[in-house]
Amino acid sequence: MPITRRAFSVAAAATLAAPAFAQAKLEKTKLAIAVGGKAAFYYLPLTISEQLGYFKAEGLDVEISDFAGGARSLQALMGGSADVVSGAYEHTINLQAKNQFIQEFVLMGRAPQIAIGVSTKNMAGYKTLADLKGKKIGVSAPGSSTNMIANLVLARAGLKPADVSFVGVGTASGALAALRSGQIDAMSNTDPVMTMLEQKGDVKIISDTRTLKGTQEVFGGPMPAACLYTHAEFVQKNPNTCQALANAIVHGLKWLQTAGPSDIIKTVPDAYLLGDRALYLASFNKVREAISLDGVIPEEGTRTALKALASFDPAVKADKIDLAKTYTNDFARKAKERFKA
């Protein structure tokens, strides 16, 4: 894939600067990363770091496998076919409630970037959330972050997850087709899909966490989203490898701080544009502020996530969760210092 002159100069500068940061020997250089819906803006920092060669610059040989949603990529980690997941932070809390310990070690998103919209065709008379009872709601994959956000919003209206039917539709063209063909009545999904449906008049947005303001309104505080996480034991045994991964992601976050829309278009694969470059760029401008600046997860945000999950999932008991074990900022802080993010 062609890399912009600007991107090349950034990458070249990083390569030249590398000796200043003598890196400890990596415990593991070949890594399998699982992600659920890689084309979504939710995971843009992962794609940027991959496309601009930042993983390779850290001595990593990374193979990224794309799944239909975050729940599937988590299954890959638990099943042993992935070393690390690029997924939603809240999975670390959910699993601890089941006495399984996974840990976030670099943050990519500081807002969930998930919007919920009702079909203007199937639900033309929509008035309140109660109207969703008995309806089919599209999510990236059952159990994924898009599903969790929908559960939270439904709970606020007194609806339980069992009051609706969740349908896995992915995060790309399949999601667009499912809504437009009338297979589903509403959708909880990420951009660029939601902006494309919104701008074409296919959905009416009823809940929006694509901006920091919208996230504050839905959750009452900051809500960490996309991150890299893995087994806590993996972090303990492979600190240099985790540092290299955090470096690559924070390098990508730093690039994104000043990248223009044309830089993004030239760097991501054409398939990610879903056939509409202008709408893709409109989506990017909408979610840009939701991207983490430095990879560090805010402590307040972890508390917001726990409170949100405990509000609709009886298995998550707030007083039984040790939030300190769900994340570490050690690697992100070192990467932030290195790249001046």
Rank of each mutant, 00 (worst) to 15 (best):
R288G: 03
S119F: 05
Q243G: 00
I48R: 05
G301H: 01
H91F: 15
I149F: 12
G221K: 10
R210G: 10
A335W: 02
A332V: 13
L132E: 07
A57H: 00
C227I: 02
K237E: 14
T15R: 14
Y42H: 09
D163N: 10
V250K: 11
M196D: 01
S65G: 11
T328W: 09
L281D: 12
A12N: 11
S188A: 08
S165K: 15
S119H: 05
I205D: 01
A271Y: 08
S65K: 14
S119Y: 08
G36W: 01
N147M: 07
L52V: 13
K334N: 10
S140V: 01
G220F: 07
F105A: 01
T302C: 15
F67I: 02
P112R: 03
P269I: 10
S173G: 14
D263Q: 07
R277G: 07
R303T: 09
T120D: 03
K286V: 10
A225H: 04
A24W: 09
G59H: 10
F166D: 04
K160A: 13
P142V: 14
P298F: 08
A318F: 11
A172N: 11
A324N: 15
P142R: 14
A57R: 10
P142L: 14
M108W: 02
V268T: 09
A308K: 04
A278R: 13
V118N: 07
F105V: 05
V84K: 05
A130G: 13
A115F: 05
K127F: 03
C242E: 01
M123W: 04
K38S: 11
L197N: 04
S145K: 06
S181A: 13
D322E: 11
V193E: 05
I206E: 00
L245P: 04
G134K: 07
L132Q: 00
R72P: 00
N147C: 11
P261Q: 07
V10Y: 05
G80V: 09
A141Q: 08
V10H: 02
A76L: 03
R303A: 12
V118S: 06
A162Y: 05
F219Y: 14
R5G: 15
S81M: 11
L159F: 12
I321H: 06
T29S: 15
N122P: 06
I249T: 02
T190P: 02
G201P: 04
S144Y: 03
T29I: 11
I184Q: 02
S292A: 15
R333N: 11
I48G: 05
